[in-house]
């Protein structure tokens, strides 16, 4: 049970580290954005994991068409708060990802490449040209 109780967190950390590794070791900017996306999803899984109660059910009160049934509060529900926070975080995540991808597209249009070492080489060459000019 000790193993099961922490396994979720370990997988979350593994996913987070895969995203982190993609972010710092890969030179392609799209791959970096994907890495950030992995990182973000791992955090979302972590939050939702903390809200889970084993044997609980989704936080929608038992009831019929006319409202909440009697005794609905006695049923064991999982914690709704992390769900709300993560629901909005997912939508904000895709909006910010679109922002990052737009930056990548603009970088491609300006430098003709999305590999960070080639961009760096171009920036260095530019700076040297600037320096050579009186």
């Amino acid at each position: 049970m000790e193993f099961l109780g922490l396994f979720n967190y370990w997988v979350v950390i593994f996913l987070m580290m895969v995203g982190f590794y993609a972010l710092i070791s890969r030179g392609n900017l799209v791959k970096k954005v994907v890495g950030l996306n992995l990182f973000q999803t791992s955090v979302i899984i972590f939050y939702v994991s903390t809200g889970k109660i084993v044997g609980g059910t989704a936080p929608i009160l038992i009831g019929d068409d006319h409202g909440v049934a009697e005794g609905a509060a006695e049923v064991l529900y999982s914690n709704p708060l992390p769900h709300v926070l993560m629901l909005t975080a997912i939508v904000v995540g895709v909006a910010t990802m679109a922002m990052a991808l737009a930056l990548v597209v603009r970088i491609k249009e300006t430098y003709g490449t999305v590999e960070d070492d080639e961009i760096q080489a171009q920036v260095l060459a530019d700076e040297q040209r600037e320096g050579a000019r009186p």
Partner: peptide, 19 residues
């Protein structure tokens, strides 16, 4: 959310032909 998502799609999809 509808407006933003469709705007984002239009922006990305319409990018190449505007160049």
């Amino acid at each position: 959310v509808f407006g933003v998502m469709v705007t984002l799609f239009y922006s990305f999809a319409g990018r190449r032909r505007s160049r």
